[in-house]
C-alpha cells in the first residue's frame, strides 16, 4: 500500500513533467499542424540554463537559498520562450506554405543543432543540480513518506496547466488561439493576427518546456545534453495519446503516461519500462485513432 502510494506520487510527478512538455507539442501542432521536434531540446536548454543561472546567482559567495529557485525559474521560462520564438522565425516560418514533410525535417535539423549546441556549451558529461535546489525533505501523507520535491512538482505543474487552461478558455487572446487552431484562414478574416498567435504559442510552449527542464533537474538531480530526446519522445507520445492539438488532452495524456510508466515498471517489468508507453499508445490508437480526447472530424467530400 505504501509502495503503491509512493509510486502514484512518482507517476504524477513524472506525468506533470510530461504534461508540461506535451503542451508545447500540442499547442504548436494545434495551430500549425507541425511536430516541433526541437521542443524536447528547448526543455534540455531550460534544465541547463536553470543550473547555470542558479550557480551564477550564488557565485559571489555561498549558493543562494532554495527561495532563489523561483526567480531562476521565471528567468529560464522567459529565455526558453524567446528561444522558441526565434526557432519559429528561423526554421518554421519560411516553410509555412511548403509541405508538411519539409517542416518536419527542418524541425529535426533544429533539434540536432540545439542538442549539439548544448553539448558544446555545457559539455558531453552529465551535470548535477546542487543540493540546495533539491530539498531532501520527506513529508508524511497517509502515513507514507513522500519526497516534498515530488509534491512541489505536481503542485507547480498543475498550477501552470490550470493557468494555461484559464488563459486559453477565458481570455480574448486565448479565444484567438483556439480560433487559429480551428481555421487559420477564417481567424485571419476575423481580424486575428495569426502570425502573432503562432509566435505566442511558441513562446508559451517553450516557456513551459523550460520550466519542465528545471523540474527534472530538481527532481532527479542529473541532467545531460541528450535528455530532451527521451523526454521529448515521451511527451509527444503523451500529446498523441490525449489527442494531439487538444490542450486538456495533453495534460491528461502526460499524467496517464507518467502513471502507466511508473506503475508498469514497478509492478510489471523494469527492462521494458521505455516500451510500455509505446505499447499503450499503439493500443489506444488502434481503438481510438485520434487519441483519447481528440475529435473525430468527418471529412467533407
Amino acid at each position: 500500500m505504501d509502495l503503491l502510494f509512493q509510486q502514484l506520487v512518482n507517476g504524477l510527478a513524472v506525468g506533470g513533467i510530461y504534461s508540461l512538455v506535451a503542451l508545447g507539442y500540442t499547442m504548436v501542432y494545434g495551430v500549425l499542424k507541425l511536430i516541433n521536434f526541437a521542443h524536447g531540446d528547448l526543455f534540455t536548454i531550460g534544465a541547463y540554463l536553470g543550473l547555470t543561472l542558479f550557480v551564477a546567482m550564488g557565485s559571489a559567495g555561498t549558493l543562494p537559498g532554495f527561495a532563489a529557485v523561483l526567480p531562476v525559474a521565471v528567468m529560464v521560462m522567459g529565455l526558453t520562450a524567446l528561444l522558441g520564438g526565434a526557432l519559429e522565425r528561423v526554421a518554421y516560418r519560411p516553410l509555412r506554405k511548403a509541405g508538411r514533410l519539409s517542416a518536419v525535417v527542418s524541425a529535426l535539423g533544429a533539434s540536432i543543432f540545439f542538442q549539439n549546441a548544448v553539448m558544446l556549451v555545457w559539455g558531453a558529461n552529465y551535470e548535477v543540480y546542487p543540493e540546495v535546489m533539491r530539498p531532501s525533505t520527506v513529508v508524511f501523507l497517509f502515513d507514507t513518506g513522500v519526497p516534498l520535491i515530488r509534491l512541489i512538482i505536481i503542485g507547480v505543474s498543475l498550477l501552470l496547466m490550470l493557468t494555461l487552461y484559464g488563459f486559453i478558455h477565458h481570455t480574448r487572446t486565448g479565444t484567438a488561439v483556439r480560433a487559429a487552431a480551428i481555421d487559420q484562414g477564417a481567424a485571419a478574416l476575423m481580424g486575428i493576427n495569426v502570425n502573432r498567435i503562432i509566435t505566442l504559442v511558441f513562446l508559451i510552449g517553450a516557456g513551459l518546456g523550460g520550466a519542465a527542464g528545471i523540474m527534472v533537474g530538481m527532481s532527479y538531480g542529473q541532467i545531460d545534453f541528450s535528455m530532451g530526446f527521451s523526454y521529448g519522445l515521451k511527451a509527444f507520445t503523451a500529446a498523441v495519446l490525449g489527442g494531439i492539438g487538444n490542450i486538456p488532452g495533453a495534460m491528461l495524456g502526460g499524467m496517464l503516461l507518467g502513471l502507466i510508466e511508473t506503475l508498469g515498471s514497478a509492478y510489471l517489468t523494469i527492462a521494458w519500462k521505455d516500451a510500455i508507453s509505446f505499447f499503450v499508445l499503439i493500443l489506444i490508437l488502434v481503438i481510438r485513432p485520434t487519441g483519447i480526447l481528440g475529435e473525430r472530424t468527418a471529412e467533407k467530400l
Binding site: V90, A91, P94, L95, A98, G99, S102, A103, V105, S106, L108, G109, A110, S111, I112, F113, F114, Q115, N116, A117, L120
Partner: peptide, 19 residues
Amino acid sequence: ARMLVFGLALMAMMVVRPQ
C-alpha cells in the same frame, strides 16, 4: 561541431528547397 553544422545544413536545405 560537425553535427551542429549538420543540423544547420538540414534546416537551411529545407528552407531553401522545401520540395
